[in-house]
């Protein structure tokens, strides 16, 4: 039986965005503390600390969880994905592209958590209905957007992933603007 005495620290290791990390934690450290303070993966946001706003959503073994409600010690040996891991090889994830093109981002604070919930949905259900989408992001509060453009973006990203040709999206044509050259 593993035992860490009151006030003591211990080292855990787990995978973040594909890479193995080792961090020192205490019993009341939460996954979000490890990500933000320990690993400086500050894309994961804290909005409420009680699992209500979803800004801290990450994937734990592929499932969306509130990282503010996961004791760091429970993550030992498991796999965590954060918003920083969505883009691969310098290419944005189709969800990220769709969020930009559908103006699904306003202040951007809920965006990372929202993207992770959406990513979990699309892995499991590549062709979700609007209701599926609304349900999948129902644990992610957004105060700016009223959710509609977010839901449209997720729908569009699902289409792109299914078609596997992310370059030619309908939304891009509709927006009538050239591809952003930033980054």
């Amino acid at each position: 039986m593993k035992e860490i005495g009151p006030g003591a620290m211990t080292t855990i290791s787990f995978k973040v965005n594909g890479g193995l990390v080792e961090v020192e934690v205490s019993a009341d450290d939460r996954l979000i503390d490890v990500l933000r303070e320990g690993l400086r993966l500050t894309g994961t946001k804290e909005g409420c600390g009680v699992g209500e706003c979803g800004a801290c959503t990450v994937l734990l073994d592929g499932k969306p969880v509130n990282s503010c409600l996961v004791p760091a010690l429970q993550v030992e040996g498991r796999e965590v994905e954060t918003v920083e891991g969505l883009a691969k090889d310098g290419r944005l994830h189709p969800l990220q592209e769709a969020f930009i093109e559908h103006t699904a981002v306003q202040c951007g604070f809920c965006t990372p958590g929202m993207l992770m919930s959406a990513a979990a949905l699309l892995r499991e259900n590549p062709d979700p209905t609007r209701e599926d989408i609304a349900r999948a992001i129902s644990g992610n509060l957004c105060r700016c957007t009223g959710y509609h453009q977010i839901m449209a973006a997720i729908e569009d990203a699902a289409r792109r992933i299914r078609a596997a040709v992310p370059e030619t999206s309908e939304a891009e044509g509709a927006a009538g603007t050239p591809e952003a050259r930033r980054e």
Binding site: L41, G43, L92, I100, V105, T111, A180
Partner: peptide
């Protein structure tokens, strides 16, 4: 500011 916001 879209790219910086969707990438965290």
């Amino acid at each position: 500011d879209g790219v910086e916001k969707v990438t965290g």
